[in-house]
Each structure stands twice: as C-alpha cells, then as structure tokens.
Amino acid sequence: MALEKHDPVTGQTTTGHEWNGIEELDTPIPRVALFFLVTTALFALGYWILMPAWPLGVTYTRGLLGFDQREVVTRQVETAAAERAGWADRVMALDYAGVQADPELMRIVGETGHALFGDNCAVCHGTDGRGSRGFPDLTAGAWLWGGEPETIHETIRVGINSGHDETRMSQMMAFGRDGVLEREQVRAVAAYVRSLSQPEALAGDARIEEGRQIFAENCASCHGEDATGMVETGAPNLTDDVWIYGGDAQSVYASIHGGRQGHMPHWEGRLKPLDLKILALYVHGLGGGR
C-alpha cells in the first residue's frame, strides 16, 4: 500500500500513507520553525538561569538576579508611601480649615477623593454624589448629621445605624402601622408636611390645620417645632424640598405610616485615617458642604 507519490503543486512527495483519501506530504520542517523552536527554548533557559524557576525539594533555584516578587512589592509599596508622605503628612497634621486654606492640598484631595469616593461611596450615593431614592443626595446641602467637615468625618467614621460601637442612631417610628395615628391623621400630617416645602401645590387644603396640630404633638420632638430638623437626632429638615424617600403625597404618607430607618456602614477600620479625612473634605466639597 505504501506508495510515495509526487505532488505537482508543491513538488514534494507523499509519505505513502493514505486514510480514506487523505495523504500527507513529506515536506521537511521549515527552517523558520526550527529556528524559533530553538530561540524560544534558549529564552526559557536564560530566564530559568536568571529568575526563580525550578523546585528542589524544600527550596527552589533562586536565579542569578535574586529576584523575589514579595520583596519587589514591599519595596514598591514603601516607595509609593514615601512619595505620598509629603502631602499626606500635612493633610493629617493640619485641621480642616488649614487644609482647606491650602489650594495645592485641596487639589490633591479632589483627585484622590474622586477615586476613594468612587470605590467606596458611589455604590449608594452615585458617582456624582447625587444619591437616589433612599440614598441621600450629598450635593443638596441638606445634612442629617451636619455638613461641616468634622461632622461629615464622624458620620463616615461610625456610620448610621451601623455595627460600630459609637454609631449614629436614628429611627423614625411607624406612626400608622403601629397605631399611633389613624389613617386620616397620617394623611393630614402628610399634607401639612408637604405644604411646608410646596405651599402652592397644597394651597387651600383643609387638612393642613389638623396636620399642624398632629405634627406639634408627635413629630416636633425630633423634627423641631418649625420642622427644620435636628442634627443631634439625624432628623431631616422637612421645610426644604430635598427628599430622601420622595416628596409626593404617596411617599410622604408611606414614610409616616411605615417609619424609616436608613443604614450607612461605618468606615473606621476599613479605610485609613488619611482616607477618612480626604473623603470628609471631598464630600464637603461636592457642593452641599457648610
């Protein structure tokens, strides 16, 4: 069966084997293939000599260059920290007003804060800090716990209703669901609350007066008699038109009926003190800071 044939296209002969019509040419291995086979093998050999490569029982060949990826990383981390130390130490040493007075430091805070905020805060508050339903808008100037860099820092450090020992705690009761207020009373107080920020929309609503009474008896202890909120209890200002859970009739009713309790994780222990300080300044600078 084995019969070498001449292939006119390539000028080669076949190996003489044939499988269901398939034949093979006996073409020699192209020199370029052999060349690169040897080249890549030599490269590998050289790399093995220079770098950590082959296991030897409990150890391995270390390589002539003495390269060790752990050492390299440690050194790079140290170098990077040293490079940052110039401005980082100054940020830590100065108080907030001091940092804010230094435009160069504030430029760095802006750059660094952007990535820190994006990696840690943006999931809830949005990359632009504008939040979404249930997550406060940090650019609106409406602060539950205070809008100065110091109070923002404290909020980030301990969180809100978080697992931190010193966490900020705040809860709005479920006035409707827990039977404190009747359904009509909830409607009335909702109308009153909405009239504070949207007077035109609710002009002439007969329930407002009743709502004012109910508010004074039930809500003022946290939100204040003038409903401008209380930073000590984290109670929001109800007279501006900034809403965490929505300012339409249905949303306000739902908040009063079912209560609210937001959560923000605490970042102490997860972020370095420097990062907390940068974030406080960055969030303060988003537009709403006081």
């Binding site: 291995i29 192209p30 293939a33 690169f36 086979l37 890549t40 093998a41 490269f43 590998a44 790399y47 093995w48 770098m51 950590p52 490569a53 082959w54 296991p55 391995y60 060949t61 390269f67 060790d68 990826q69």
Partner: peptide, 25 residues
Amino acid sequence: LPQWVQTLGMTFSIMLLVPSWSSAG
C-alpha cells in the same frame, strides 16, 4: 503562587508558541 511556578508557566507558554503556529501553518 510561588514565583518559580509562575516562571515555569510563563516560559513553557512561550515555548508553546512554535508548536501552535506549526499546526496553524
């Protein structure tokens, strides 16, 4: 992963190129 294992993975991957291209060629 210890670096020597990474070295072996990398160098054998480079040597692998010629047989692979031999098939394609």
